[in-house]
Design a protein around this nucleic acid. Structure first.
Lengths: 114, 114
DNA sequence: GCGATATTTAACATTTATATTTAATATCCA
DNA sequence: TGGATATTAAATATAAATGTTAAATATCGC
């Protein structure tokens, strides 16, 4: 699994997991909450109109993408944001920066011309 | 639907669609291909070990997220990258930049100390 | 008009995602 | 010990995603 294609597939798989995890507003809200400070599961679940097991599984998805780290402390599971994978996602998006920059500049030029 | 919550929900929905669209490696590969130059459906589908209808639907998902624009020219559907929504995704990610930067700086300090 | 080409639609099968409710498990603490 | 708390697991239902093949639709070009 140390071949070039293997590494490529693994990176793609990680991006799949990261973007899929981000593709749900509940999970993005959980990340936003964790960006404030770490929190236990019950605390994280409280604001949502959704059962605790449902939130628990959303958190597991975030963990699977490497976006949340869990520390078990007695019966309390404390969750913390782990932002490193977001960096990979941002790096992927930056590849396309010139395209949206391009269209913005085109728009600017267009607006100036009038 | 022009209330603040309405707008918020709409933005969340758009982010859902964008991130979900990006959460599939076939679709990311299609975007990468379209970043070279526009192409028709058949052209886009050719490299994939997957039926044409399957690719056609992936493209529709990208369209749904606003990432691909289609121009019908006779029987040929020409697709072009439309990167603007990626900017929203990047903007969302930038909110978290300080977290991954933070860990990078910590690492740098740690490496320096030794 | 007719056959070849480009694409979608339909019908279908399979898998994955998401949510619920009800148990089970583990820990805390009086 | 025993009841309250924190969390997961199991069972279940539904919906959505993904892929296939075969048929339908529309256009091209002779």
């Amino acid at each position: 699994m140390s071949s070039t294609v293997g590494r490529h597939a693994a990176r793609e798989q990680r991006l799949d997991a990261i973007f899929q995890a981000l593709g749900d507003r509940t999970r993005r809200a959980l990340l936003a909450r964790l960006a404030q400070r770490p929190a236990m599961i019950t605390e994280l679940a409280a604001p949502f109109a959704m059962s605790l097991p449902a939130v628990s599984r959303h958190i597991r998805v975030l963990e699977g993408a490497g976006l949340v780290a869990r520390t078990v402390d007695g019966r309390v599971h404390r969750c913390a944001l782990h932002a490193a994978p977001l960096r990979s996602a941002a790096a992927w998006l930056q590849q396309y920066r010139r395209f949206w920059q391009g269209s913005l500049e085109s728009l600017a030029r267009y607006v100036e011309r009038r």
